[in-house]
Amino acid sequence: MSFDDDVRIVKRVRRGDRESFALLVEKYERPIFSFIYHFFNDYALAEDLTQEVFLRSYRFIRTYDTKQKFSTWLFTIARNLCIDEMRKREKERTLPIDEVRGGNIENPSSRNPEDIAEALSDSAFLKRLIAKLPERYRTALLLFYFHEMSYEEISSVMGISMANTKIILFRAKKMLSDLYRKGE
């Protein structure tokens, strides 16, 4: 059981075994990096924030509740950092609402604009659209479709009910299709 393994590793880290922490980095570096990368669609930023996620998790490893999944806890930290970073960025340059909502995304010319699935199979385009979603929709979407988390795990990461998670996921997809239609 990988769940058990994580808890065992965490316990070793708490006892001062720093080398064991490298195992956790090894295991979760890629998913965390991917999450942040898609969150901002920014590779360099993903590097810095991934480092920060692990640094924080190391610093606060004692606050991790071993009844929870370690990955869920780690993603919670990642999400919080992303939100902080987003606020920082918003303060620095206030975007016109329209752009935040994805008004000006150039749409790759697709033969059949009616077929949204086909248009979105252009992954670069879809990536840009995702990065335009409001935070909670983006987070839920990434966790569900890219990280294959359950509703339960997502609700734990985001601190919302399962019912809400489902609604958010649905709305996120609706928003993506709206963004697509608007950019058409």
Binding site: R30, H38, L120, S123, K127, Y145
Partner: peptide, 11 residues
């Protein structure tokens, strides 16, 4: 979303 090819990105 389900068939998105680059879900995981190598750091």
């Amino acid at each position: 979303l389900r068939t998105f090819p680059g879900k995981m990105v190598d750091p």
